[in-house]
């Protein structure tokens, strides 16, 4: 990467951060409040013998909201980037960093939630139990929960970036038909990490969860292939004519 590209990627990343900052902050605040309220309600009405995690359900929100952000990346920012004199390559670097950044934020957020929930249960001497498989056993193990969530969310955002780019490039029909294919990166990551409904499906079919080191490294490989593939694809996209 040349010095120019490096410097301009930095500018684009800051620009993207500014653009997504507000919606991310809102999202985090809303989810945190919502789950605090739900948690309080559950605590007050629950059967004291159940110790099911409430926070675990937030995983859907923290996966699919960033996915929608990923879908918007190309449609919203590529035309502006090119019109501002950025190359698609530089946009691609910035978007890649954006994908990793957004999922990183979600990972920290999720891990913090598990941590808080663990302490909350600990006050009554309970330990939360999880309905879906995780790499970590206990909520306080943020050194495991952060990478787990990071990888899973990144898989979703990367798939979102791919989907959004395909829609920008080919319009409505083709990508809609190809949607099952475009979502593959997210499904593969979820299956390998045994989370989400892809993970549940694997469980149901009786597949053993692969060893953690294998799951993590193969997920990172899938992520790398997806991101570099989308990056290459994005570099060929024409900016659309303006709507009249």
């Amino acid at each position: 990467m040349s010095a120019t590209t490096y410097q301009r990627t930095g500018v684009a990343v800051r620009d993207l951060t500014l653009g997504f900052r507000l919606s991310l902050i809102w999202f985090v605040v809303i989810i945190a409040i919502a789950f605090a309220v739900i948690g309080a309600i559950v605590v007050s009405v629950r059967d004291p013998s159940t110790t099911e995690s409430v926070w675990e359900n937030s995983a859907y929100a923290t996966r699919y909201f960033p996915l929608s952000q990923g879908i918007m990346l190309t449609a919203v920012y590529l035309p502006v980037a090119v019109a501002s004199g950025l190359t698609r390559r530089t946009f691609g670097y910035a978007a890649t960093i954006g994908v990793i950044g957004i999922s990183g934020i979600m990972a920290v957020f999720e891990a913090a939630g598990y941590l808080v929930e663990y302490w909350a249960f600990d006050l009554t001497g309970d330990v939360p139990t999880y309905a879906t498989p995780h790499l970590f056993e206990h909520g306080y193990q943020f050194w495991i929960s952060v990478p787990e969530v990071w990888i899973v969310v990144a898989g979703n955002v990367a798939a979102g970036w791919l989907i959004g780019s395909a829609y920008y490039r080919w319009g409505w029909l083709g990508p809609t038909l190809a949607l099952p294919l475009l979502i593959i990166p997210a499904l593969v990551v979820e299956a390998l990490m045994s989370v989400g409904w892809a993970g549940a499906a694997m469980d149901a079919m009786g597949f053993e969860r692969p060893p953690t080191w294998l799951a993590v490294t193969s997920c990172l490989a899938v992520l790398a292939i997806t991101l570099s593939g989308v990056h290459r694809f994005v570099r060929t996209i024409d900016i659309r004519p303006q709507k009249a």
Binding site: S2, T4, T5, R8, V82, G85, L86, R88, R89
Partner: peptide, 8 residues
């Protein structure tokens, strides 16, 4: 895709 030119 020529950054030297696109910025100009």
């Amino acid at each position: 895709e020529n950054e030297r030119l696109t910025q100009q």
